[in-house]
Design a protein around this nucleic acid. Structure first.
Ligand code: FES
Ligand code: FES
Lengths: 177, 177
DNA sequence: GAAACACAGACTAGATCGCTCCGCGTTTCA
DNA sequence: TGAAACGCGGAGCGATCTAGTCTGTGTTTC
């Protein structure tokens, strides 16, 4: 994939569901099934978000995740950093230090400070990060909310409720389904 | 490596040498040896820069590359696009279309337009691209030029000249060295 | 005490990256 | 005239990364 991996897309989409259902803990399996993606993969994602303080986890049956703070105070940069970890846009290999003209006697000025090319790349990365930091989960939820009809939110709550019911039913009809 | 690969670092550094020696054609081997990097790898880089119209190539003995236009009119974005090709920062997989709540009957509004998350990523990518487009090869050459002593430019020209001489000498003493 | 949860770690298939090697056509120059 | 130095394309290779699976361990609910 590209620089921002599939984990970021999965993670942010999951967090949007959590923002929609702030009163309920959703398990990683709920979130995966809800979106039709790999449960194992989503399960590997959330410990990172929890360590970054974006979500809080609760253990045991009926456990799961919920947002650690308001969606308006979670930026896309928070999520990207949590999932991707420290991952530079550009990885300078200090080419300049191998110049044949110097022939072994590397002058101080040649490796002093950061290479001008590297500096330009760092500026580009910073521009990207500032753009990501300027968008919050709430912004995105608003955009989606304006597109979705009013009935959608209810349908989601019903789906989540249906999950809990299905679990209870499974306990009642154990071995038959 | 990261999103911007080693080819970009090699490529831009090479182009800086070409900007310094605008009157001479430098071969890909010259440029590689000058910087102590792999000649084969640099040789694979330059056809891309030539197709993008950043350098012009000349064939045969004494051939090589030179800048197609002034360094002030070559941006870092030009070089990155030439070497990396079309490579999105974020590769949306249209997760939203798989939502289990819809259960097969995907409503129009759900996939209408670009996903809000994807849109935010495109803005971040655009911010990065604008930053890269704002820096030219000449800008970087100036920065380097201010650091390097006056003698450096002469040393480079001498090194390049020495290369041509070495080739002539090799022809004269064929088989002995 | 079983089921549903979180979480850590080993593992795999496939893609990509950095790099090499080879063959072909072109140009120069002894 | 032919060898050497060029550009250029394609095949291939080892290392690394990605997306995803499969354990296993500990915790909470019912
Ligand atoms: S040495 Fe890495 S960008 Fe110049
Ligand atoms: S569907 Fe790809 S980012 Fe939303």
């Amino acid at each position: 994939m590209a620089h921002l991996t599939a984990g970021v897309e999965y993670g942010i989409h999951c967090l949007l569901w959590l923002a929609l259902e702030r009163d309920t803990s959703l398990s990683s399996r709920d979130l995966a099934d809800l979106q039709g993606v790999s449960p194992s993969f989503v399960a590997k994602l959330f410990p990172k978000l929890e360590k970054a303080g974006i979500v809080v986890a609760s253990n045991g049956l009926r456990g799961g995740y919920r947002l650690a703070r308001s969606a308006a105070r979670i930026t896309l940069l928070d999520v990207v950093d949590a999932i991707e970890g420290p991952k530079p846009l550009f990885d300078c290999q200090e080419i300049r230090g191998r110049c044949a003209v110097f022939d072994g006697a590397l002058p101080r000025w040649a490796t002093n400070g950061v290479c001008a090319i590297h500096a330009a790349m760092l500026r580009a990365e910073q521009a990207m990060r500032e753009s990501l930091a300027a968008t919050t989960l709430a912004d995105i939820a608003d955009t989606v909310g304006r597109k979705a009809p009013a009935s959608f939110s209810q349908a989601v709550t019903a789906w989540v409720g249906g999950r809990t019911d299905a679990r209870s039913a499974r306990r009642g009809t154990r071995g038959r389904g």
